[in-house]
């Protein structure tokens, strides 16, 4: 009962929960659940799933718990039972009382073709608003996963707009003094101008090929003898660069019908190679350890 009262109090004062409060609160919540709180990855990623903390760590074999703001996620040991309940508790922690709001788990399966990754799960709806993608990963980098990880992607801006009762995300208060719009609107505009209008497709294509070539060159040099020193994460960064360049070309409308399929396939090939090398190196290191 005491617990419920606390939530009630938060509900009534929810207008005071700023965007940054919300980020801090969620980070604290997941830290209490035993997650590593990682920092955002300093590279262009189309989705948080692409950061190495998720893409590589879900390959296992060790279970891994991490949360970070990029958005926030928590790949975890599948045997850990009620991840749904923990997730709902995190909403309660933000002041969303389940008895006064309609939370629904609607089927929505997730897929990232450039990463050879997919999973089964739901979009979580809060009074008709989609606020979270909830996925049980099944495959990543073309590898069947073992153990199965769960990823939660919170739509931070939407939740903040909901909690603060504003219709436009730019009106969300970041803290008491600054709005989300003041923080982000300018860069949103600039990036849009570049992606939709200003990007030079030929340059993007050339860059794509340079990054891809470098990644392939490194991959070709991999062998068990050099496994320990192999710059795997650099290869993965190059893969992410390719993925991002593909997204720019796509947004720019510069990709033809057949080219689209081919480009996705080329990025996926790199991602699958990275996953293969990661696991190969892991098992080699396990074998190398004295019994």
């Amino acid at each position: 009962m005491a617990k419920l009262k606390k939530h009630f109090k938060v509900t009534s004062s929810r207008k005071n929960l700023s965007f940054q409060d919300m980020c801090l609160r969620l980070s604290e919540f997941w830290a209490r659940q035993g997650c590593v709180i990682a920092l955002p990855y300093d590279l262009e990623v189309g989705a948080g799933t692409m950061t190495p903390e998720t893409f590589l760590r879900v390959l296992g074999p060790e279970p891994w718990r991490v949360a970070y703001l990029q958005p926030s996620r928590r790949p975890a040991d599948g045997r850990y039972g009620d991840i749904q309940d923990v997730y709902l508790a995190s909403l309660a922690d933000l002041g969303i009382d389940l008895r006064h709001h309609d939370i629904r788990f609607e089927e929505d399966n997730w897929e990232a073709p450039t990463l050879g990754a997919w999973g089964i799960g739901w979009q979580v709806m809060l009074d008709g608003l989609e606020i979270t993608q909830f996925t049980y990963f099944q495959q990543s980098g073309g590898v069947d996963l073992e153990p199965i990880s769960v990823e939660l992607t919170y739509g931070m801006e939407r939740i903040a707009a909901f909690l603060q009762g504003v219709d436009n995300v730019y009106d969300v208060s970041w803290n008491d003094a600054v709005t989300y719009g003041e923080m982000r609107q300018e860069e949103e505009r600039e990036l849009s101008v570049y992606d939709f209008e200003a990007a030079a497709p030929e340059t993007c294509r050339t860059l794509f090929e340079l990054y891809e070539g470098e990644a392939e060159r490194l991959l070709a040099s991999y062998s068990l003898e050099v496994a320990e020193r192999f710059p795997l994460r650099q290869v993965y960064d190059l893969t992410l660069k390719c993925s991002h360049l593909f997204n720019i070309l796509d947004a720019r409308g510069a990709i033809s019908v057949t080219e689209r399929v081919t480009l996705i396939g080329r990025v996926r090939k790199l991602a699958c190679e990275v996953a293969r090398v990661y696991l190969d190196r892991k098992s080699a290191m396990v074998e190398a350890q004295p019994a």
Partner: peptide, 24 residues
Amino acid sequence: VALLNLDRDTRGLIRQGHERVLAA
């Protein structure tokens, strides 16, 4: 008409939420 998976919309918050989403 929306169907909730709840007993009732005690404070009308849910209706407001749905109306906002639909308006958007």
